[in-house]
């Protein structure tokens, strides 16, 4: 099946000469949830803004549902919903009205039942006649989501939807995202919370300094990255690994003061118990044990560090 969003060699140089995106190519499949991770200023918002028509690209093309976002913007944008990173709402406007306005802008006939349903789903129905400036920050963010959902998009961009949102609300947003996915909506979200990406994404993309470093299936990535390291500090330095420990993935530090053991957290048996037993049998006395997660976070940090 043709990808719903296809990004080809996209680049953006802002007026000051800053390269915000460098030759980014990525296909997004219909119905998937893609999480984009990357440090501040990596280019996540720029990427989304180009797809949605807010920023003009300096090179490359994007199609949404097969429609070029520049040449055939009407068809492309009809499919897209955007929840921007910044909360931008008219302060004196009423919730229901501002959400209905969004629907109208996208050329859809008025449908107050649908708007009510959207508000209901976002627990905003009781606030429908409140002015925006009477809402809390979390509620305002949900109004932004309601605006994006009001015109029934096929592709939804969520730029840091859970920034500054409490744990409970974050969980409820995740469930909204999952519901949308069930209805076949494709979701692209950016986040700084790696556990968020782990929790809801099907695929994870990492952007740093305008470059897409990787875009990989989450399970595969976790499998590759879900390894742990255990550092075993010894009472006395060890010159050589004893015979009975040779079949462990063990590494001896140069000065022999500690050993490192790498194991797979996803595996049924980590081999830790056996290793500790065998260490005891060999008469090696342990001073301390530390473990370190080479999680998504670790890989993320390593990847980002590598790019200059």
């Amino acid at each position: 099946m043709a990808p719903i969003v296809s990004i080809n060699n996209l680049s953006k140089t802002y007026e000051g000469g800053h390269h915000a995106l460098r030759d980014v190519s990525l296909d997004i499949e219909e119905g998937e949830i893609l999480a984009l991770l990357g440090p501040n200023g990596a280019g996540k918002t720029t990427l989304i803004s180009i797809i949605c028509g807010i920023v003009s690209p300096t090179g490359g093309t994007v199609t949404v549902g097969g429609h070029d976002v520049v040449d055939d913007y009407r068809h492309a944008r009809t499919l897209i919903g955007l929840v921007p990173q910044e909360i931008t709402l008219e302060p004196f406007e009423k919730v229901f009205r501002t959400v209905s306005f969004s629907r109208g802008l996208f050329g859809k006939p008025p449908n107050s039942q649908l708007i009510s349903d959207v508000l209901e789903k976002l627990s905003l129905l009781d606030k429908k006649d409140s002015a925006i400036n009477q809402l809390s920050g979390g509620m305002r963010r949900r109004v932004l989501i309601a605006k994006a959902l009001s015109h029934e998009p096929r592709v939804l961009f969520l730029d840091e939807p859970t920034a500054g949102v409490d744990v409970e609300l974050r969980k409820s947003m995740w469930s909204i995202v999952r519901d949308l996915k069930k209805n076949g909506v494709t979701i692209i979200l950016t986040t700084h919370y790696i556990e968020e990406a782990e929790a809801i994404a099907d695929r994870i993309g990492i952007i740093s300094d305008g470059q897409l470093l990787l875009a990989e299936d989450k399970e595969a990535l976790m499998g590759r990255l879900g390894r742990k390291q255990m550092r075993i500090d010894l009472q006395a330095p060890l010159d050589e690994l004893p015979e009975n420990l040779s079949n462990y993935e063990l590494e001896r530090a140069e000065d022999g003061t500690y050993l490192t053991y790498v194991y797979d957290t996803q595996a049924d048996r980590t081999g830790i118990t056996a290793l500790l037993n065998d260490l005891g049998d060999a008469g090696i006395r342990i001073r301390d044990v530390q473990t370190q997660q080479s999680s998504l976070e670790q890989i993320f940090v390593d990847l980002v560090k590598e790019t200059p």
Partner: peptide
């Protein structure tokens, strides 16, 4: 809308 940022919606709408 330019000042408060809601212009994003006009720019991203199919108009």
């Amino acid at each position: 809308p330019k000042f408060i940022g809601t212009i994003y919606e006009l720019l991203s709408a199919p108009i």
